[in-house]
Design a protein around this nucleic acid. Structure first.
Lengths: 188, 188
DNA sequence: GTCTATAAGACGATAGAC
DNA sequence: GTCTATCGTCTTATAGAC
């Protein structure tokens, strides 16, 4: 691409605003102010706020899933990949770009947006579960533990934001990884 | 109290609306419609939305903390109390009344409201950590694991809401409790 | 495709009668 | 203490010139 056109700038601006203040509280007006495009251009590319939100949330989900899969699907030992996913440095005080959408009423009330969020978490948990099965865990246990791993990260964001302390997320992950390491060692 | 006066009805209505759609998206207008009081009465008791939010959020936090402490501070074995906290039946699809406030911009931008949310989680994690120390865990490990336990519950809410499946939260808790039980057994 | 101008209604908050 | 009426601003969205 040779130019960053109005459409791309609108999506990028919406993604940033959604990440920092949520979808509901973000007005189309703010998006066009930040992006620098005119009023009419926004409504030319995205007739309603729904259309803009779908494009921006879809882009954010695709990016987040690509990052997670790069960690979870490579060729290092399976447990190492899960631990790498858990311990990846995160903007704990900013919250999860996708996870925060689950308490954004504007998202949950919109069938299309909610489906995008659902797909993200179903795939994320699926990737973690696949890695855990490689370690020799039975299917049921791998599935449960994959839910736990993703929940620890999401809950870590909540704790960090609530207390204003990024260390709260690291503590939650540390507690889980320690338990995980112990169990795996005794199985070996 | 012999009567349920306007003030109490306003707080109760605000609590219900905040729980279902968040603080930011709830308008004072909605609160007075649901509560049945008049426009002027609301602004007589609560001059600004901030005042109403502080009263309602404060009440919700006090209730939630009382419930958690009833489980975590009784006289049964310490690990049983932590497991009881983890496994308590929850409205998984509704989300945590308090946890959801951490991604509510109207709350996080208000120093007083944010402090109330902070205090809730600091005390909750503190109560879980105290119970875990009773099991003989060193202070550091107890603190980390308390963060993990609370994160599993909060993340469980996120997963359940995201996937539309209350079973997602139960899976996350089950995975964690299984690890916890194993570790404790081998320590005994 | 992009712009300015503006519509119709909800927002938080206030005024002033009762 | 409670009411109705209203203010000024912001919202999502549309109209119509260029």
């Amino acid at each position: 691409m040779v130019t960053t056109d109005a459409r791309d700038r609108l999506i990028a601006s919406a993604q940033r605003l959604f990440a920092s203040q949520g979808v509901g509280p973000t007005s189309p007006r703010q998006v066009l102010e930040v992006s620098g495009v005119g009023q009419g251009s926004l409504y030319h590319h995205f007739p309603t706020k729904h259309d803009l939100a779908l494009a921006a949330v879809g882009a954010s989900v695709a990016e987040a899933l690509a990052v997670a899969r790069a960690e979870l699907d490579d060729d290092s030992p399976a447990l190492d990949r899960v631990v790498a996913y858990l311990e990846r440095p995160r903007d704990a005080l900013g919250g999860c770009t996708i996870g925060r959408l689950t308490s954004d009423q504007a998202v949950m009330d919109d069938d299309d947006l909610r489906d995008v969020v659902t797909a993200y978490f179903v795939r994320l948990v699926g990737s973690v579960a696949a890695a855990l099965r490689e370690t020799g865990l039975p299917d049921d246990a791998a599935r449960d533990l994959a839910h736990t791993a993703v929940a620890v990260v999401q809950g870590g964001y909540v704790l960090a934001r609530a207390t204003g302390d990024p260390g709260a997320m690291r503590a939650a992950v540390r507690g889980f990884v320690t338990l995980l390491g112990r169990t795996t060692k005794e199985d070996a």
